[in-house]
Design a protein around this nucleic acid. Structure first.
Lengths: 173, 173
DNA sequence: TATTGTTATACTCTATAACTATA
DNA sequence: TATAGTTATAGAGTATAACAATA
C-alpha cells in the first residue's frame, strides 16, 4: 500500500503521459489515426476475432469499435465476414494490405521509440512493460462493476440497468 | 537498448493505458473535465504562473491552455491578472474555491487509486512513477526539434517556420 | 426477450490559423 | 517585427441512446 502523496504523483505522471501519446500520434499516416492503428495491431497480435472480442481488448464501447473498424475496412485493411455459427456476429480479419500497413506502422513507431529510448536499458524497458501491464490488470479486474452514483436522490424509481452490460457506466455527478 | 519486439509490446501497453485514463476520467465531476483538473493540479503543485509556463507543463499548444484556463476561470476556481512587468502576459492563480475543488478532486482520485492498486507495494508504485517520469523526459528532450516532413517535393520555396516556435509541428504524410 | 452490431448525436481534447494587444 | 494570449474552426476519440437483425 502506498500513500496519498504517491498517488497524487502517479496521477500527475498519468496526465503528463498524454504528451508521449501525442508525439507517437504525430508519426501516424494521415489516413491511419490511432484508433485504426490499435485495431490493426490487435488483429495482428491475436488473429481473427469477433467485434465483441475486439471491443474487450480495446476497452471501449462497442459503438467505438464499430466506428474504428468501419474506417479500417473502408481502406481495405480488414475484411468483415458474418459468422456462420451466429449470423448476428461478424468476424474481423486482416487483409494482405492490412498486414503491409501494420508492418509499416510498426516500423515507424519502433524507430521513434528506439530514438527516444536510446539510453534505456533492455531491463528498464521490460520493467516499464511489466508495470504498465499490471496497472491495466489492476483496473480491468474491477471493470464489470461500474461505479454507480449514490442512490438516486428523490422518490423517483429509476430502473437499474443490468450491471453485466458491456457499456461501462459513468458516474459524473 | 531494447529490441523491436519489446518496443512493439510497449506500444501495446501505451494504447491499452487509455482504458485506465478513461476510468479515472469517469470519477471527475461533470463540470471539471480532465483538462480543467490538470490546470488545477499544476497550479496547486507549482504555484502561480504565466499562461506560457502552464502551456509548457501541460505540453500542449497555447490555444489549448487558453481554453482550459477559460473554463476553469468561468467557474471561479482560478483568477487571471495581468503581469505588471509585461502587460501582454497574464498570471494565473488558484482561488480559495479552486483549492477546495482541487482538494475534492485529489480525494476522489487517490481513493480510486488506493482501491485499484490495493495490492501494489509502495516500492512498485514508486518504480512506476520513476519510469513514467523518465519516459516523459526522454520524449521532452527532443521536443523543440519537430520532425519535419522530407524536403518539399517540387520547386516551390516554402518559407521554413522558425524551429523555436512553441507549436509542435506535425509530420503526417 | 436478449444479444450483436450499427448509426446518430453530443462532448472533450487537440492543433492550426487568424487575430488583438503589447513589447 | 516579435511575442503573449484569445478565438474560430476542424479532426479525432469516446459514450449514450435508438435502432436492426438475429438468437
Amino acid at each position: 500500500m502506498a500513500g496519498r502523496a504517491q498517488y497524487e504523483e502517479l496521477i500527475r505522471q498519468f496526465s503528463a503521459f498524454g504528451a508521449v501519446k501525442r508525439e507517437l500520434g504525430r508519426i501516424l499516416p494521415a489516413d491511419c489515426p490511432s484508433g485504426s492503428a490499435a485495431v490493426l495491431t490487435l488483429l495482428g497480435r491475436y488473429g481473427d476475432m469477433h467485434m465483441s472480442r475486439l471491443t474487450d481488448l480495446l476497452a471501449v464501447d462497442v459503438s467505438v469499435t464499430s466506428r474504428h473498424v468501419a474506417h479500417v475496412a473502408e481502406r481495405g485493411w480488414i475484411a468483415r465476414s458474418p459468422d456462420p455459427a451466429d449470423r448476428r456476429s461478424r468476424i474481423v480479419r486482416l487483409t494482405a494490405e492490412g498486414r503491409q500497413q501494420l508492418e509499416a506502422l510498426s516500423a515507424r513507431t519502433t524507430q521513434l521509440l528506439a530514438e527516444r529510448l536510446d539510453d534505456w536499458s533492455d531491463e528498464e524497458v521490460a520493467q516499464l512493460i511489466r508495470l504498465m501491464t499490471r496497472l491495466r490488470a489492476s483496473f480491468d479486474d474491477c471493470r464489470p462493476i461500474p461505479h454507480r452514483p449514490p442512490p438516486a436522490p428523490g422518490p423517483v424509481h429509476e430502473p437499474e440497468p443490468d450491471p453485466t452490460t458491456r457499456t461501462p457506466a459513468h458516474t459524473r455527478t
